[in-house]
Write a protein that binds this DNA or RNA. Structure first.
Lengths: 252, 252
DNA sequence: TAGTGGTCTAGACCACTCG
DNA sequence: GAGTGGTCTAGACCACTAG
């Protein structure tokens, strides 16, 4: 239901004529009428501006509004598209990306962007519990769902935990599988930080999104069977692409 | 560090003159120079538009950009303010709001908006595992941190689990405390759904935010010692107000 | 190459806040 | 009552995409 909107729930009668909201509603109705499926492209801004007899600035405000709600999204300079339904991302299931996506009848793809050995900066060093400047492996990848680029990830791995891991084909192998099968390291605890922000420059470019598109940030640190932080991720998701889920016992 | 920005990290030299970004940087510099603390008000849009010799529309774009990043926020028709640092919200600690906030040296307040008995709609009935139309208690509240309204919550409680709970002063008592002390119900499992969206109409009004301000949605279902869903929340946070955290063992 | 989205200009009116 | 933010108009140029 990509077209559901926040006030579809609290549908109290609109007592006052609401500003952008008027146009927003027209757009939503239009999307429902024409029954555009997730991933389909909207008409050009100039066409819509005529159809709804408004100006481009006003139309754009309404479109940005719907983007913020997660109903539609942009590709840089390519136009507006209807958002597919959100992938459910179970934080504690810790499934490899491919399995998570395919279990929801979607197609998964991964592209390797960079893989290199770099010195740990302050943040990474703190997260991994190592000295600043220590060599770590830095891997950046993007992930696609049904061909749409939705996720930019930056991994940092302790080199002493995973010597030579860059030799593997990282567009194919799941990192967690490599950890277990090649390095006998099992992840026994994960720690997350989640925030709603925007895509950084690097992520926006890699995802072909506009500068400053809304994003869900998921930062994860993985700990092994010895309680040692072995790697961390910085994930930036197109914010309309996922819904995070989680079920657990509260901790005292 | 409310003023940190996404590309403060990936600070690769700006090779090209970037559009809104130029003004965005000027604004960030200005905020740093004038050393505005969290909660302080920015100059009026017309003043800033003169100071940065630009137009109001362009200025507004840049401000909206910074809002999306979580650096600044608006109060409806009152102006722009610097975002205080984010509250860390540990999902599995399950601390009452007041304790969570005060443990981070902030001031917590709660206002009761509505409390009533209503029939369960489809969504609520599914979540609580009851028949549609069953009577449930619906409670809406807002929460403040250091006087800033940051959270709108809508609770739905099973009436058969908490008969007469509306008699208590719900602006004062923690619901989880009431559950345990008055009804001998302990929450032994919680289930979350998290998504990045916008404030709905009701929440925006209650938080004095502009229509369609970015929000972090946190939906929670609480289960008691018998594995029964006893209540659920719909939380809408101003997206710059929190950072969600979480640490647990991955589930098989 | 035509058309698109990204960006920007220079105004305007209104409802609301604030002093 | 002065000034503010919220909304809107009617244009424009540019770099890029798509056919």
């Amino acid at each position: 239901m990509p077209l559901s909107s926040p006030d579809a729930i609290s549908q109290h009668v609109d007592t006052v004529a609401i500003p952008v909201a008027g146009l927003r509603h027209k757009l939503l109705s239009y999307l429902e009428e024409t029954d555009l499926m997730g991933g389909q492209r909207l008409p050009s801004e100039r066409q819509m501006m005529v159809r709804f007899s408004t100006t481009r600035v006003t139309l754009r405000d309404a479109l940005l509004q719907l983007e913020a709600e997660g109903c539609i999204y942009r590709e840089n300079r390519r136009g507006w598209f209807v958002s597919p339904s959100r992938l459910r991302y179970d934080l504690l299931a810790c499934l490899p990306f491919r399995e998570m996506v395919e279990s929801q009848q979607r197609k998964a793809q991964t592209d390797l962007l960079t893989a290199a050995e770099v010195p740990a900066d302050t943040v990474i060093a703190r997260r991994l519990g190592i000295e600043e400047g220590c060599a770590v492996y830095r891997i950046t990848r993007i992930r696609r769902i049904d061909d749409r680029r939705v996720l930019h990830v930056c991994h940092h791995l302790r080199r002493d935990c995973f010597p030579g891991i860059l030799e593997f084909d990282l567009a194919v192998h799941s990192l967690t599988d490599l950890y277990r099968n090649e390095y006998a390291i099992r992840v026994t605890r994960v720690s997350f930080e989640l925030a709603s922000t925007v895509l950084g420059n690097e992520a926006a470019e890699a995802l072909n999104a506009a500068q400053g598109s809304p994003a869900q940030r998921v930062t994860r640190i993985n700990f092994d069977q010895n309680g040692r932080a072995v790697d961390c991720d910085d994930e930036h998701w197109r914010h309309d692409a996922i819904e995070l889920t989680l079920s657990a016992a509260p901790q005292r």
